[in-house]
């Protein structure tokens, strides 16, 4: 008999036992290990996915912040550049204005200085020239010269006519104080009488007079009443000369001033407005005009 039923049963039991043993020692542990590994791999992959997503988000955030930073930086640098440029312009304008003002001031100062210098020089020269002239004439003035001057004055008084004569007559008439006759030297009584007489005759009235000596006249006689003046003196000539010289100096300075270069360096050459020399008073001018 090929089939031994006890062996059959025993083998069936053995097989059942083997199934249990294999389940216990093989399938379960192996399947568990595989499941765990799968779970682990899945977890690692999920973690990697999460990290990748997170990294992506962080990268996006970083990119966004970077772009924002760039924009902000550009905006700020533009603003700073603008502010710096404006400040630079302002400082430049201020500096330019200061430089201009300084330049103008310097120019003005130089002009003023030059003018003062010119004036001083002109006056000094004028004064020296006239002082010399006056001294020479004073030295030359003698009694005979004084007499001659007196004669010339009287002659001129007599020759006086027209508007000048009317004005002087009006002045003499309106003046309550005696008319002033000034001379360098004391006039003699004859001279005084001659002058009195000439006045009385010329203006057909009695003209009260008072006599004074004035060295300023250098040499000559001068009649003044209520602002009007008539006279003949070398001082008048000298004043007239001084005026002419002053005018000439003034003209020269003006022409130099108008030709002035505007640049700073050229200012060193300096030309100033005409220095005004001591001008004769209007009355004196009139007297000179009348006298000459």
């Amino acid at each position: 008999m090929l089939i031994d039923w006890f062996t059959v049963v025993a083998q069936a039991v053995n097989f059942a036992l083997l199934v249990w043993l294999m389940k216990r020692f093989l399938y379960k542990p192996i399947l568990n290990a595989i499941a765990k590994r799968d779970a682990r791999v899945a977890a690692v992959l999920a973690d990697a996915d999460t990290k990748r997503d997170e990294a992506g988000r962080e990268r996006e955030e970083f990119d966004r912040k970077n772009a924002e930073f760039d924009r902000e930086r550009d905006a700020r640098s533009a603003k700073v550049r603008e502010a710096a440029s404006a400040e630079g312009e302002r400082l430049l304008a201020e500096a330019r204005a200061k430089a201009d003002a300084l330049s103008v001031r310097r120019q003005a100062a130089r002009r003023s200085e030059a003018r003062s210098l010119h004036q001083a020089l002109a006056r000094q020269a004028q004064q020296e020239v006239f002082a010399i002239a006056r001294k020479a004439l004073a030295d030359l003035a003698t009694t005979s010269l004084e007499e001659r001057i007196c004669e010339v004055f009287i002659g001129r008084l007599r020759e006086l006519e027209g508007e000048a004569k009317d004005e002087l007559a009006k002045a003499l008439a309106s003046d309550e104080a005696p008319a002033l006759v000034r001379s360098v030297a004391e006039l003699s009584s004859d001279q005084r009488a001659s002058i009195q007489k000439a006045l009385d005759v010329t203006f057909s009235m009695e003209v009260p007079l008072r006599f004074e000596t004035s060295p300023d006249l250098v040499s000559g006689i001068e009649l003044s009443a209520n602002g009007c003046k008539l006279g003949w003196s070398i001082a008048e000539y000298l004043r007239s000369l001084a005026k002419s010289v002053g005018d000439l100096v003034d003209e020269g300075l003006e022409s130099e001033g108008s030709a002035l270069p505007t640049d700073e360096s050229a200012l060193d050459g300096v030309a100033v407005d005409g220095a005004a020399p001591a001008l004769p008073t209007p009355a004196a001018q009139k007297a000179i005009a009348d006298g000459s």
Binding site: L2, T7, A10, Q11
Partner: peptide, 9 residues
Amino acid sequence: ASLSTTVAL
């Protein structure tokens, strides 16, 4: 190789 075993299986 035993029929008993194969029968049991």
